[in-house]
Computed example of a mutant assay.
Amino acid sequence: MQKRSTFTPVRRARHHSPLLVVSGVLLGALLASGAGAGAMAATGEQPVNETLVDVTADANVSLGAARATLIDVEAIGDEIEESGLDVTGSTDIDTSTLRAAIGKLDDLTTLPLMLVPELADDVEAATSTAQTRVAQVRARFDEAVAKKAAVDAAAEAAAKAAAEAAALAAANTPDGAKATAQRLMAERYGWGGDQFSCLASLWQKESSWNYQAYNAGSGATGIPQALPGSKMAEAGADWQTNAATQIAWGLDYISRAYGSPCAAWGHSQATNWY
């Protein structure tokens, strides 16, 4: 009988497919981080799904801020153009980097999840740079607006002062003083044309309706020849330079002392003073 030879089979090495190797690595990473099936079963949570939601939500927030910044850039540009003001320094705002970053992150549905956070960071960085530039340009524009407002206010004040000076100069003439007196006596005392005729004669005799009249002998001053002239401060601090103030005081004096201009004129004709 032929003796059989003993034979020990050799085990061949098992070859794993690359897909299985990668899957095993990923599974090991999930298990090591506590995100494996056992961890999910213990906590009842779904970390992978929550991460996807959170990352997408954060990316959308970043995109919203970026788009709002682009609107701010356009708005400040429009304001500057419409104002026509000369803004100090450059007002250009480069948005090319921001637009490019938005474009890369814009379609979240087709992006690999692992790329989203980095692209969102790029968007946020570009947004911050653009916002800083917008703030700089806005500050320069606001400065130009304030400067223009100050210039306009100064011009308006100067024009108002000039108008007031012209009006005062006109009111301080004899004709201007008479017009003021006729208006004030009608408004405040109800005196008509007959009373004005008496007043016109009275103050023509006293001062020729000259607000700068001064009697060196007695010290009587102004259109109504107040004695002393400082009495007219009761009607206004500008009694030395404003015929209207002198007239207001003079009419009040006549009303209190005589009752009417014609009564004062009659007294003046009889005594040569009133």
Rank of each mutant, 00 (worst) to 15 (best):
V53P: 00
G217I: 10
A226T: 04
A59N: 03
E187C: 08
S128F: 06
F141I: 03
A130Y: 03
L70S: 11
D107S: 11
C198F: 01
A200T: 00
V22C: 05
H15M: 13
P261N: 07
Y211A: 06
L20R: 11
G34R: 11
V25D: 13
L105V: 02
M232N: 01
A149H: 07
W265A: 02
T97F: 00
M185V: 07
A235Y: 05
V123L: 06
R11K: 14
G84Y: 11
R67T: 03
G236A: 04
E124R: 07
L27Q: 09
W249V: 00
A170M: 01
T51C: 02
N60T: 14
E206T: 01
G103K: 00
A135V: 04
E81D: 12
L199H: 02
A120V: 06
A32F: 09
G229R: 02
G222H: 00
K231H: 09
A29H: 07
S23Y: 10
Q195Y: 03
I93N: 00
L251R: 01
W209L: 01
T8M: 12
T69G: 08
V123D: 02
V53C: 01
T245G: 00
D92L: 13
A200G: 01
T6F: 11
R12W: 09
G38S: 10
A165R: 13
L199F: 15
T43M: 01
A177V: 10
A32I: 07
A100I: 05
R67H: 03
T173V: 00
A257Q: 13
A155D: 12
E81S: 14
S230G: 09
N49T: 14
L85N: 03
A171G: 12
T109R: 13
E118Y: 14
Q269C: 08
V134P: 02
L111K: 03
G266F: 08
A248C: 09
L119C: 10
L111W: 04
F141K: 04
Q195I: 06
M114D: 09
T43E: 02
G77P: 02
D106V: 09
A139K: 07
Q212A: 14
Q182T: 13
W265F: 12
I71D: 15
R140M: 13
A270T: 08
S62K: 05
T88N: 13
A101F: 00
A139E: 13
L119P: 02
A100R: 10
